[in-house]
Structure formats: C-alpha cells, structure tokens
C-alpha cells in the first residue's frame, strides 16, 4: 500500500484532493488536520517518515492568468521522506490570504524551525507555536514579503546608499 493510500484510508474526511502527477504522490489536506496527519506520518510504523525534507510555500495569486482556480491564495508544501522505506510524500495545506496561519511542526521535526522562518520571511505566513518566528534571509527593516506575487521583483529597500 502506498503512503498516499494509507493516509487516504486513515484521514478520508480531512483530505481535499489527491493526485500523483509524474509519480509524485500528493495530498491536499485541511489546515486543521495538519498536526494529526503529520504526527501520523512520523509515528505510524508502516510509514515512518523521519525526514521533513523540504518545506516551502507557493503563492497562487492570478495562477495561470486566473484560468485555474485554487481553494486559497497560498499553499504550504511539505515534502516528507522515509529513510527506512525510501518513499516520499508531498503534503499541501491551503492557507487563506486574510489570516495566513498554520500549525508549526517544530515539535515533530527540528528541521521545520528554519524552514518555517523562511516561509514567514518570504510569504508572511505565520506558524502557530513556533518558538522563534522572525525573519531569516532578509533584514528586520524590510517591508513586505518578497516572494509574494504582488511584491515587484526589483522594488529595493536599501539600508544605506541611494534610493533607486
């Protein structure tokens, strides 16, 4: 049984959508189910996802010129990997634009700490229960969140030197 099928079986009501495009198994789940699903992924012996390999987010503002509708503006994307079974799973959580907040996974995987800080820095998505949520790549004086689609790529906010 693939990890995706196992998660579907266990959390059938919490899953919004699944697909496995080009062999990448993906489950889109409700934000409130993130914590239990993640815990299950880590602790179920037949899944044993001991790596949180990657954590990032995607901004779907005017995705494909507005042709493709997404449930929410942002999606936080988790890539899990199991060393024992050598399988992978992608988890996605839609995050609303008005209250961009999801649960933090710091308590389960230590690697989530910095990744979540980066997502906060770049997208302005808050993580509930994160011990030290502050900017990581940009400086504190920076206004806005750079990887949002409505942030112009060349809008500079110099600390010193001329404004241009």
């Amino acid at each position: 049984m693939t990890p995706l099928a196992r998660v579907q079986e266990r959390f059938s009501t919490q899953i919004i959508e699944t697909h496995s495009f080009r062999g990448d198994e993906t489950a889109v789940i409700r934000p409130e189910a993130l914590r239990p699903v993640a815990q299950f992924l880590k602790e179920a012996p037949e899944l044993d996802f001991n790596f949180l390999m990657d954590l990032s987010a995607v901004d779907y503002l005017f995705f494909a010129g507005g042709r493709i509708q997404k449930p929410a503006r942002f999606e936080v994307v988790y890539h899990f990997f199991s060393l024992k079974f050598n399988h992978r799973l992608r988890l996605k959580v839609p995050v609303d634009e008005k209250a961009p907040e999801v649960d933090s996974l710091c308590a389960l995987w230590a690697s989530a700490n910095w990744y979540e800080r980066e997502v906060w820095d770049m997208f302005g998505i808050k993580f509930k229960g994160h011990p030290n949520l502050k900017r990581i790549l940009m400086y504190e004086e920076f206004q806005g969140h750079a990887l949002r689609k409505d942030y112009p790529f060349n809008k500079r906010q110099p600390l010193i030197g001329p404004q241009y």
């Binding site: 940009m138 400086y139 500079r156 906010q157 110099p158 600390l159 010193i160 030197g161």
Partner: peptide
C-alpha cells in the same frame, strides 16, 4: 542589501 552596511 543586508551586506551593504558591513562593506561600508
């Protein structure tokens, strides 16, 4: 931009 003050 973060490095600029250090360089100065």
């Amino acid at each position: 931009q973060k490095m600029a003050p250090v360089l100065k």
